[in-house]
Design a protein around this nucleic acid. Sequence first.
DNA 1: TAAGATAGACAACGTCGTTGTCGTTAATAG
DNA 2: CTATTAACGACAACGACGTTGTCTATCTTA
Lengths: 155, 155
Amino acid sequence: MSIDPPGFELPLRLFLGFRVLIDELHAALAREGHPHARPMHGFVMQAIGTEGTTAVELGRTLGVSKQAAGKTIETLERLGYVERARDPRDTRRKIVRLTPSGVDMLVRSARIFDELRARWAAVIGAERLRELEADLRKVTPQEVFRLDVPGWFGA
Amino acid sequence: MSIDPPGFELPLRLFLGFRVLIDELHAALAREGHPHARPMHGFVMQAIGTEGTTAVELGRTLGVSKQAAGKTIETLERLGYVERARDPRDTRRKIVRLTPSGVDMLVRSARIFDELRARWAAVIGAERLRELEADLRKVTPQEVFRLDVPGWFGA
DNA sequence: TAAGATAGACAACGTCGTTGTCGTTAATAG
DNA sequence: CTATTAACGACAACGACGTTGTCTATCTTA
């Protein structure tokens, strides 16, 4: 029977695994014409989705204030990843939609993540990787897209 | 042969796993007399270690400026987790050391992490958990304590 | 002994989150 | 139909936390 490692290694390895994947994603994105993409952006754009959304809605999805969501949208707008337009049916609202550049970034991200996953499969074995994912699903929340990430780690 | 999930699920599950463990750690710490402990603090105090360190050294370890490290130290000092004293051999330096309260927090954290790990083992199986850890070790860097975390996720 | 390097304090600034306020526009109650 | 209430987005002020730059004191080294 093998010896168990100290419990603190587990969270560190999970975080390091996450970090490695995200870092490699963004290195690849930078090589493919998206040098300004930041870890946060992919999550936010996933939250925006193909339907479009508004600042208030986005804030609720991300768990931040509508003002914070608005500022993030401004940043993405400056980078050319989203655009805003008045909703003709409710002129208070401004719909945020992905631009072709934004869609391109999401498509590339999806492909790059698949490639990175394949690399992990080559290292630890395809079956072990599927087991790893299945195990993580058992101990993590079901709703993958509830990430109140911003400022979560703050001191 | 089972179907592979999309590659983007893997980083999300890793992050969620990390988050779940850290959140539960801090909920437990709060119950045990450390309500002000934040996720960052444990990492910083691990970096300080039992030997003590200085602001410049800590900054290098954490990958931030000495000024940022200094501010973090001030926060920990206010919370009573560390204390500073002049180095008699080099009066420029101020040695940062853990207080008994700081040591207590680290000791409790270690125990709580062990308990959380045991809970995961109960859910997915002890052997599967060991395999999961072994697999993660193969795809993550060896030096666990090189976390240039601060601001890393920033947009 | 003089010159350079290092520790830490202080200030200014940028980014990103927060709350609060306000004007405009929709939805709803009377 | 109108008056009140609710929602959206913009603006301002503030705090937390990172950055760089500067300064003094002290140690190291040529």
